[in-house]
Structure formats: structure tokens, C-alpha cells
């Protein structure tokens, strides 16, 4: 399978500050690629270099088989972008902004446009300044999704959307994927890309920490558990995959590698579970597990 986006050893400096320090990224054609990283890790910077808005200081970037800095016009005709910070022209209505961006890209699909406006419950007659953050975001999403392109580049597209609209967004992206489009979807929340992404890349401080299929990343994923038991089993600390164990009376809190959930659960079951709460791992937890691994000398696969 060929790659829609390939980034190798990308370095980007802003003055003396190094925002990207040898970043790698590989997005394969036809896949939804989750691009994860905490705030300020360099997601938007990477995307701006990919779009030819910023100039790379070192490294190579290939976008749809071309050079994003040189071949701007033909390449951009084949992609659509939703910026992380959507700022609309105060005096233009949302509808005008959608049409303008569509035309700049070489036309948009009328029926898709109408369909998306309805799905996202967006009023196209309002002026840019009077939209709320979520609605500005919707304008950019509708503009991007209603154009007929191969690649969608979405930078934290759901950051202002309510849960209902987020669900709509997930459905629409799933449809795009079914149509065979490639999607680069950045986010700082793991669960957001989980439902959609075929592969994910994780960035931290301007370097790629991990890339792979969701399963591969999940292997490093830990959930927080809080279990109330009738009796705390012996040798709890010896079980593989249990970390940060704390026992208080008959209440146990710990983090568990998702790969070892089954073993841990049967261990708890032997102690008689009264109640159990589980919190899914955050992005930070994944990083922490990476660091643990590195400290323990077992590097990631």
C-alpha cells in the first residue's frame, strides 16, 4: 500500500526554539490515521509543514507524491483542511465562507454541502463573528467534507463540538473512510481517534514516540482500576501487568496493562469483587507506560 503522506526527520525551528526535532510520520492511502499528542507537542506545526505553510528546516516531506512546498497548487486541489484554530472573516456569512473555500479548492459537491449543513444543524446566514467556537468549527468541517478530495487533513476538528455533534462528526468521517478517502486526524484525546483510526502516531515534544495499529498501541495502554473486594488475594503484587498498586483495607487501586486484563480480573475474582470502576487510559498514561518500559529496559516493539 502506498503512502499519502511521508515525513522523515522533519526539523522545524522558531527562532531558537525547536518545535519539531526529527519528526517522522507515515500516513497510508485509504486509511484514517490518528495523530496524537499533548498540547504543544507539535501536531499543528507538523500539519502546517505538510501543507506547505511552514518551511522545513531539515528533513523530507512527501505529500500525495509531491513536494508540499513546491507543488502547492496541484497538491492542494486534492486535499481539504480543517485548521485547529478556525477564524472566520467577521463580515462574511458561514455559507459564503464555505462556498469561497470550496471554490478556491476547485468546486464543491452541492448535495454534500446541503446534507452536511443539515447534519451539523448549521445556519449559513450568520456572520462569521456571531458564530460560537463550535459553529465556526462546523463551518470549516462542512467546507472540507463537502469538497471532492482524496485527503482530509483535520487538526483537532472536534475541539469545540458538543457530544452530539461529535457523534455526527464520527459518522461522517466513517462515511468518508468508506468512500476510500485518506484522513489525517489530530487530537489530544485518545478515545476520540479510537473509534475511527486504522493507525495512530503519537508525538511528544516534537518527536514521534510511537506509531502503529491501534492494537499495537493498546498493548501499551493501561486502565485505572478501583476494586472493592471481600478479601484481598495474596501475591497481588506478583501478577504481571499490575502497576501502582495501593491497598487500603479491602479497597485496591492500581493501573493495569490492557493486555493483561484477563489475568488480573481472574485474580480479583478469586477475592470476591464487591464493586469495580475502571477509567480508560489517557494519552499521558501511554507515555508513562512508555517511560516505564524504557526504564525497565524493555523497549517498545
Amino acid at each position: 500500500m502506498d503512502s499519502a503522506i511521508t515525513v522523515k526527520g522533519l526539523v522545524k525551528r522558531f527562532g531558537s526554539f525547536t518545535a519539531l526535532d526529527g519528526m517522522d510520520l507515515d500516513v497510508q492511502t485509504g486509511q484514517v490515521h490518528g495523530f496524537l499528542g499533548p498540547n504543544g507537542s507539535g501536531k499543528s506545526t507538523t500539519i502546517r509543514v505538510i501543507l506547505g505553510l511552514l518551511r522545513a528546516d531539515a528533513g523530507t516531506v512527501t505529500l500525495l507524491g509531491g513536494d508540499p512546498w513546491r507543488d502547492v497548487v496541484p497538491l492542494h486541489r486534492r486535499l481539504a483542511y480543517v485548521p485547529g484554530d478556525v477564524s472566520l472573516w467577521p463580515s462574511l456569512t458561514g455559507g459564503e465562507a464555505i462556498d469561497l473555500l470550496g471554490k478556491l479548492r476547485g468546486g464543491l459537491d452541492e448535495s454534500r454541502r446541503a446534507h452536511l449543513l443539515e447534519r451539523f444543524e448549521l445556519d449559513p446566514t450568520k456572520k462569521g463573528r456571531t458564530y460560537s467556537k463550535g459553529n465556526r468549527q462546523k463551518v470549516a468541517i462542512v467546507a472540507a467534507l463537502s469538497s471532492d478530495v482524496e485527503l482530509l487533513v483535520l487538526d483537532e476538528p472536534t475541539s469545540g463540538l458538543d457530544p452530539l455533534m461529535e457523534a455526527v462528526f464520527q459518522e461522517e468521517i466513517a462515511l468518508e473512510k468508506a468512500r476510500g478517502r485518506t484522513v489525517l486526524l489530530s487530537s489530544h484525546i485518545l478515545s476520540e481517534v479510537e473509534a475511527l483510526a486504522d493507525r495512530v502516531s503519537i508525538i511528544r515534544d516534537g518527536v514521534l514516540v510511537e506509531t502503529g495499529t491501534l492494537d499495537q498501541v493498546r498493548r501499551h495502554r493501561r486502565s485505572h482500576l478501583r476494586v472493592e473486594l471481600t478479601r484481598v488475594p495474596d501475591r497481588l503484587g506478583d501478577v504481571d501487568g499490575i502497576h501502582e498498586l495501593a491497598v487500603q483495607g479491602t479497597t485496591v487501586t492500581c493501573t493495569v496493562d490492557d493486555a493483561h486484563t484477563a489475568d488480573v480480573m481472574s485474580m480479583f475474582a478469586s477475592g470476591g469483587i464487591v464493586s469495580i470502576t475502571s477509567t480508560p487510559a489517557s494519552l499521558e498514561d501511554i507515555f508513562l507506560s512508555h517511560y516505564d518500559d524504557r526504564l525497565n529496559g524493555t523497549s517498545s516493539p
Binding site: L51, V73, R105
Partner: peptide
């Protein structure tokens, strides 16, 4: 500085 050059430039438009 209001990030409004970005959307047109990300569309198919020469600088």
C-alpha cells in the same frame, strides 16, 4: 495573525 490566510492557502491557491 488572525490565522485567516491559512484556509485560502491550504486550498488550491498559489501564494
Amino acid at each position: 495573525i488572525d490565522y485567516r490566510l491559512e484556509p485560502p492557502l491550504a486550498a488550491s491557491l498559489a501564494r
